[in-house]
C-alpha cells in the first residue's frame, strides 16, 4: 500500500514536471493569447487585491504589536520600524500573499479548468482551432507569475503601513521618521530576493492549479477534488520554494 502510494506520488511528480516542461515549450510558440492573458491578469491580480491588502495590513499591524514587548525588554523600542520592516518585506508579506493567492487563485483555476474539462470545454477549444494548453494554461500561469509579485509589492506597502499604525499604538514615530527608518534598514538584498521568489510562488500556484484542473477526473466530485488538491499542493509548494529561495540567497550571500 505504502509503496503504491509512493509510486503514485512519484508518477504525479513526473506528470507535473512534464506539464511544466510543456509550459515552456508552448510559451515560446507563436500566437500568444494576449486578450485572455489580460483577462486573467485582471481576475488574478486586481480581483485578489482587496483580500491580499486586508491580510497584509493585519499582518503588519500584528507583527508590530507582537514584536514590541521583546524590543522593549532590550530597551530597543526605537528599532521597531527596522525590525518590522525587515521581517515584513523579507518574509511575511510575500509568503502571506502567496498563501492567500494559493487559496483564492489556485482553487479558482483548479475548479475552473476542472469544470471546463468535465463539460468538454477544453475539447471544444481544441476543436475550435485553439490550443487549450496555450489558451488556458499558459495565460493563467503567466498571469499568476506576473501578478503575484505585484500583489506582493502592494502587500509590502500595505503591511508596512500597518506596521506604521502598530508602532504608533503605544509609541510615537512620525510618518517621515518611520519611512526613513524603513528605507534606511532595507537593502537591495532584502527586497530583490523577496520579490524574486514571489515569481516562483506565482508560477507554482498557476502551474499546480492548471495541472490539477487540466487533469481533473470526470464528474463534479473530480472538480472539487482538483480544486482542493490544487490549494493543498500549491500552499505546500510555496513553503518549499520559500525554503529553497532563502537557502539560495543565503548561499549566494545576497542577504
Amino acid at each position: 500500500m505504502k509503496s503504491s502510494g509512493f509510486r503514485k506520488f512519484l508518477s504525479e511528480t513526473g506528470d507535473i514536471a512534464r506539464f511544466t516542461g510543456r509550459f515552456f515549450t508552448e510559451l515560446f510558440k507563436p500566437r500568444f493569447e494576449f486578450a485572455e492573458f489580460f483577462r486573467q491578469c485582471y481576475f488574478i491580480g486586481y480581483k485578489s487585491l482587496p483580500l491580499v491588502a486586508i491580510t497584509a495590513f493585519i499582518m503588519g499591524l500584528v507583527i508590530t504589536i507582537q514584536s514590541r514587548p521583546t524590543l522593549v525588554e532590550f530597551g530597543a523600542e526605537a528599532w521597531l520600524p527596522k525590525m518590522v520592516s525587515v521581517s515584513l518585506v523579507r518574509e511575511i508579506a510575500p509568503v502571506i500573499t502567496a498563501l492567500i493567492c494559493a487559496g483564492k487563485i489556485g482553487s479558482g483555476i483548479g475548479a475552473e479548468l476542472g469544470s471546463m474539462k468535465v463539460t468538454e470545454q477544453i475539447d471544444a477549444m481544441d476543436v475550435s482551432g485553439t490550443n487549450p494548453y496555450k489558451f488556458l494554461v499558459v495565460t493563467r500561469v503567466m498571469s499568476t507569475t506576473l501578478m503575484i509579485p505585484i500583489l506582493a509589492v502592494l502587500a509590502d506597502a500595505v503591511s508596512l503601513y500597518g506596521g506604521f499604525l502598530g508602532t504608533n499604538i503605544r509609541g510615537v514615530c512620525s510618518w517621515d521618521l518611520y519611512w526613513n527608518q524603513v528605507f534606511d534598514t532595507l537593502t537591495y538584498g532584502d527586497v530583490i530576493p523577496s520579490i524574486a521568489k514571489t515569481f516562483l510562488f506565482g508560477f507554482a500556484i498557476g502551474i499546480i492549479g492548471c495541472y490539477k484542473g487540466f487533469n481533473s477526473s470526470k464528474g463534479t466530485e473530480g472538480v472539487g477534488q482538483s480544486a482542493n488538491s490544487a490549494v493543498v499542493i500549491s500552499s505546500l509548494l510555496v513553503f518549499v520554494l520559500d525554503l529553497l529561495a532563502v537557502q539560495i540567497t543565503d548561499l549566494l550571500q545576497l542577504t
Binding site: 491578469c41 486586481y46 487585491l49 505585484i150 500583489l151 528605507f183 532595507l186
Partner: peptide, 23 residues
C-alpha cells in the same frame, strides 16, 4: 476592466521602483 488592471499594474510596479530608488 483594462483600465483598472492598468492602474493596478502601474501602482504595483511604481511602488517597487520607488522603493528600489529610495533604497
Amino acid at each position: 476592466r483594462n483600465v483598472r488592471l492598468g492602474i493596478f499594474v502601474l501602482v504595483g510596479t511604481g511602488l517597487l521602483i520607488a522603493a528600489l530608488y529610495l533604497i
